[in-house]
Amino acid sequence: MHTDFTGTGAVGAVDAGRRPVPVAFSLLGPFRCWAGGQEVDLGAPQQRALLATLLLHDGVVTTVESLIDALWGTTPPRSGVTVIRTYISRLRQVIGDASPSGQIRIDSMAGGYAVRVPPQSVDVVCFRRLTLEAGAAMRRDDAAGAARSLREALALRHGLPLTGLPGPYVQGQRARLQQLISDAEVSLVEAEFRLGRYQEVLPDLRALLVEHPLRERLHELFMAALYRLGRQADALTHYQVMRQRFVEELGIEPGARLRDLHRQILLGGPNQGSAEPARMPGRRSVARRRSVSAPYGGRTRQRR
């Protein structure tokens, strides 16, 4: 499946059967909607945030009270219920114009609302599907297939998720989406590593380590890639610098896997970059990463 959620390429999106998707929603960047290759005006920021909230619940009914909390948190206006109903009415008009066939609609039920939308029309849903496909490929030892799915997933991002939307709910989901993107980036590096593309993954690993300097898995992959390229001394130097940072900033030694890898590299000899150590960084299935509930959760700064 090829999907264009930016509106800059083919019309909207195309599903697996190569049929045009009438409406496409983009959340992995500024929140935007496309219909027939044209951007749809979704209204004021809070109205847009309401629609994004419903989309992130993936068809699950969201009560009016939950929507008020999502938009205003602990300081809702007295007219919150009326405002929500006004936003829903306006969004129904906009969506009805964009999807006259009724394929996309907002339903009222059980004291709340739910958006009915084809899964291929929402970039977050497509992203999640592709990462699950990558996890299945890794379990089949198909690193090339996993890499293809992950590259397609990461091509859907186009900035900070949910840019321009207000509200505490969106703020939390922005962090979740950033984490999903970050996990996919690491998974892609792991797939490329398993394909033996050690030189190619080094720049990506350096960039990821700048953002996540305390993420041990990245240090494992970086040291292992250096070692496989015959750069034993560089791998050992990186370990010493990393260990010093862990001790100074966290007050702890690196984990057992890193210490074990360090010992293997020490014993490997200066010219054994192509050798297979007893336990180089092992595979880690994409599907075993942290799952995210109905609101899908990219790249976020690693906190101490």
Rank of each mutant, 00 (worst) to 15 (best):
H2D: 05
D4R: 08
G7F: 14
G7W: 10
T8L: 15
V11S: 01
D15S: 04
A16F: 14
R18K: 10
R19N: 04
V21E: 03
P22S: 12
A24M: 13
A24Q: 07
S26N: 12
F31R: 10
W34C: 03
W34M: 09
E39R: 12
D41R: 09
L50C: 08
L51F: 08
A52N: 04
L54T: 14
G59H: 06
V60C: 03
T63W: 12
E65I: 13
S66Q: 14
L71K: 07
T74D: 09
T75D: 03
P77I: 15
R78V: 14
S79L: 13
V81R: 09
T82Y: 07
T82W: 08
T82C: 02
T86H: 05
Y87L: 11
R90M: 09
L91T: 10
Q93F: 07
G96N: 03
A98M: 13
S99Y: 08
G102E: 04
I104Y: 05
D107W: 13
D107N: 09
S108K: 13
S108E: 09
M109A: 14
A110Q: 11
A114H: 08
V115P: 00
V117I: 15
P118E: 12
P119H: 13
D123V: 13
V124A: 10
V125R: 11
C126R: 13
R129W: 08
A134G: 02
A146F: 07
A146M: 05
A147Q: 01
S149P: 00
R151Q: 01
E152M: 12
L154Y: 01
L156R: 04
R157M: 08
L165K: 07
V170E: 01
A175R: 11
R176W: 09
L177I: 15
Q179F: 09
S182V: 12
D183I: 15
D183G: 06
E185F: 04
E185R: 12
E192T: 08
F193P: 00
F193L: 09
R194I: 13
R194A: 04
G196R: 11
R197W: 05
Q199Y: 06
E200W: 06
E200K: 04
L202V: 15
P203D: 04
D204M: 10
L205T: 11
A207T: 10
A207F: 07
A207G: 01
H219D: 03
H219N: 03
L221A: 05
R228E: 00
L229G: 00
G230V: 10
G230C: 04
G230R: 01
Q232N: 01
Q232Y: 01
Q232R: 11
L236V: 02
T237E: 01
T237S: 02
Q240V: 14
V241K: 09
Q244H: 07
E249P: 00
L250E: 03
P254E: 07
P254N: 05
G255W: 05
G255V: 11
L258G: 00
L258D: 00
Q264D: 02
G268K: 12
P270V: 13
N271P: 00
N271R: 13
S274T: 15
M280N: 01
P281H: 04
P281K: 09
P281R: 05
R284K: 06
V286T: 12
R288G: 00
R288E: 08
R289S: 09
S293H: 11
S293D: 08
P295R: 08
